[in-house]
Design a protein around this nucleic acid. Structure first.
Length: 425
DNA sequence: TCTGGGGTCCTAGGACCC
DNA sequence: TCTGGGGTCCTAGGACCC
């Protein structure tokens, strides 16, 4: 992309990503309806085209579509993030061979800066064909002068087979935008769509033609930027460097309702351990830990409860022991006996580079940072070599009746040797 | 019986300062 | 008893994304 050329964005997006990943290692699934479930096998988070054609909605609770899943013999998979993460990396490495102007936006989407090409559509067809040939995954590409317009174009590339997977936004986008609801624009969710509706704005074209100052006053700067992006004025740049993470969260629903303090404490301690590993892997330490606990939001009102409590460390830490201690302190504040708890979580906040941690003038008694660092390093090393949780804290429990359900999980073909054997049968 | 998990950014309002 | 205006920083909550 030469400096003089006008910016042009391509959004490359894997079609039905999770479903396509499952299909990659099970050729029998070709042409068959496939769905992938959320954690705890709770709801549908990905569908093959055939599953979409059966009218199975995104995000629906599994128990609500049980009948159609059985009747139509839909193949059902628990989500397998190790597999999806690995395949995502393969797609990105193919894209990197085409251009350094690359922003990995999500597990299945990347923005590419493609300004300066004489024939961007041909270039993107080449990208699409190459990704399919080298990874086996089908992608669609949308092209536009802003990220928001590239998103719109991508949607059309996916929906209308006549475009063969690549759609470039025309110079006059109005006919396209006139056929698009505001809720289908990137950045406009259900709430904002409803508020726009009340202002008499229902299509993307109407939003584009609205007064940006008026929109800013009523709906804030985010929506104002969307108006400008729809008009072809870029407000969002290609972000090629990954910014430092601001927070780390680990939260899970329990496989079944949990009431006993000991069980919740065990679950929370194991989430804390996982969060602490993520923290150390990135060379960070945390200043603040928050524990959250709740019953099901679908529970009867008498059982509905959600609360959170935080703990601020006197100096930043990356030590699992410190964090478990803090977590117990928080949990005691918010745990109420007798309730059927459904979910707990830990959030690590106010992160900083572990190498430049500000030491407290008054460190808590009995702490020895060097010793703790060495211990954590050893624990991480053993767990990396021998598998998750080979070494873990006793408080995380032995029985783990709360551990999540994943009854339909596919093998980790690409990341575990043991699982690879299953391919050959 | 059964409804995901992990992030980001923005805004409003309170605390505090001069 | 009366009692300003403006700035900054922090936090909680809301909205969005995939």
């Amino acid at each position: 992309m030469s400096k003089k050329s006008a910016p042009l964005f391509a959004l490359v997006d894997v079609n039905n990503f999770y479903a396509s990943c499952e299909r990659l290692f099970e050729p029998r699934l070709e042409g068959v309806a496939v769905v992938v479930l959320s954690n705890n096998d709770g709801c549908v988070i990905a569908r093959s085209q055939e599953a979409k054609d059966l009218g199975i909605p995104m995000g629906i609770a599994v128990h609500k579509v049980k009948d159609v899943l059985r009747r139509e013999r839909v193949r059902v998979y628990s989500s397998n993030y190790a597999l999806y993460g690995d395949l995502s990396g393969r797609v990105v490495s193919v894209l990197k061979r085409f251009t350094p102007y690359l922003e990995v936006y999500s597990i299945d989407e990347s923005f590419l800066g493609i300004g300066g090409f004489a024939d961007p559509a041909a270039y993107c067809h080449d990208i699409k064909d190459t990704v399919l040939r080298w990874t086996g995954l089908p992608v669609s590409v949308g092209i536009g002068v802003t990220k928001t317009l590239a998103k719109v174009a991508n949607r059309i590339a996916k929906k209308d087979p006549r475009h063969k997977g690549v759609f470039i936004m025309p110079d006059n986008p109005d006919p396209v935008l006139g056929n698009l609801n505001t809720g289908d624009i990137w950045g406009i969710g259900r709430r904002l769509a409803a508020r726009l509706d009340r202002l008499g704005i229902t299509t993307a074209l109407e939003l584009k033609n609205a007064d940006p100052k008026f929109i800013r006053a009523r709906l804030g700067v985010v929506v104002e930027r969307t108006v400008l992006e729809l008009r072809g004025t870029p407000c969002l740049a290609l972000e090629m460097t990954v910014p430092a993470q601001k927070g780390i969260m680990v939260s899970r629903g329990f496989a079944r309702r949990v009431t006993e303090y000991r069980d919740i404490e065990a679950a929370v301690a194991s989430y804390v351990s996982r969060a602490a590993e993520k923290l150390r892997r990135q060379g960070l330490s945390t200043n603040k830990l928050t524990i959250s606990l709740r019953t099901s939001p679908f529970a009867p009102a008498s059982e509905r409860y959600a609360n959170a409590a935080g703990f601020v460390f006197s100096e930043a830490t990356s030590d699992t022991t410190d964090m478990i201690k803090a977590a117990r302190h928080c949990l005691k504040k918010i745990y109420k006996p007798g309730l059927p708890y459904q979910k707990a979580g830990v959030f690590l906040d106010a992160l900083e580079d572990a190498r430049h941690t500000q030491r407290s003038l008054f460190p808590p008694a009995g702490t020895n940072p060097d010793k703790s660092r060495a211990l954590m390093k050893a624990v991480d090393r053993i767990n990396a070599d021998w598998g998750h949780d080979t070494v873990r804290f006793a408080v995380t429990g032995i029985q783990r009746s709360w551990a999540m359900k994943q009854n339909q999980k596919s093998p980790c073909y690409t990341t575990r040797w043991q699982d690879l054997k299953q391919v050959g049968g």
